[in-house]
Design a protein around this nucleic acid. Structure first.
Length: 199
DNA sequence: CTGACGATTCACT
DNA sequence: GTGAATCGTCAGC
């Protein structure tokens, strides 16, 4: 179980990093409650030239400041006043690239996740969808800008490799406002995985 | 200060 | 398939 290094996140190709995150295990460790899930669905947000990104056109504000941080940080924000969405910041400082984790497959701490979400065993929606997975893993805006090289939130590789023909690229979800950029194939999913969200 | 709205989810028809 | 929930952020006045 190798924790991903800072260098993994600092690379400049956000699409490549997004693809490599598939199959890795996202772990949270809050109040001695350890939960984790295998990443099966991600979306890349390509900085200031990407209309779907919060940092489009270099829109630097207090909220988006985290995306400009050095790679390897967590960007967590509130959506629709209800849902906390978890992103991984990539690239060097001042380059606002980020990857939204949209779904994971529960690996351990499942009883804790069911308690947090009030869901029953075997419910595939436990960690399916960005709002659900944040709730199950206990992620909230309190942890915005926490480093993924620390001990509270981190990502490990357990040796599982996702082969190229198991990865499917599709347009991103819920970004219709982004015009032409809404069509970009920046969403990556693991083929046939029941925890992938969307239709 | 005010108002519009969102990288969503769930309950209902 | 449709609509409500719900609040921080941001642009505009």
């Amino acid at each position: 179980m190798e924790k991903l290094s800072l260098e993994f996140y600092l690379r400049n190709d956000v699409l490549q990093v997004a693809k490599e995150l598939l199959g890795k295990v996202l772990i949270t460790n809050f109040n001695k409650k350890r939960t984790g899930g295998r990443i099966v669905e991600v979306e890349a947000y390509n900085g200031i030239i990407d209309k779907a990104s919060h940092a489009y056109n270099d829109r630097r504000t207090k909220r988006t400041e985290t995306i400009y941080a050095e790679g390897g940080a967590a960007y967590i924000y509130l959506c629709y006043g209800i849902h906390h969405l978890f992103n991984v910041v990539t690239n060097i400082k001042n380059v606002p690239h980020a990857i939204l984790i949209r779904a994971v497959e529960p690996v351990f701490g499942i009883d804790i996740m069911m308690k947090r979400t009030n869901k029953k065993k075997g419910n595939v929606s436990l960690t399916r969808g960005p709002g659900n997975l944040s709730k199950a893993l206990g992620l909230s805006t309190l942890y915005n800008e926490v480093s993924l090289t620390g001990d509270e939130i981190y990502i490990v590789s357990d040796g599982v490799v996702v082969s190229k023909n198991e990865i499917i690229a599709t347009p991103r979800i819920g970004v219709d406002y982004a015009g032409k950029d809404a069509l970009l194939p920046y969403r990556f999913i693991i083929k046939d995985n029941p925890f992938v969200s969307g239709k």
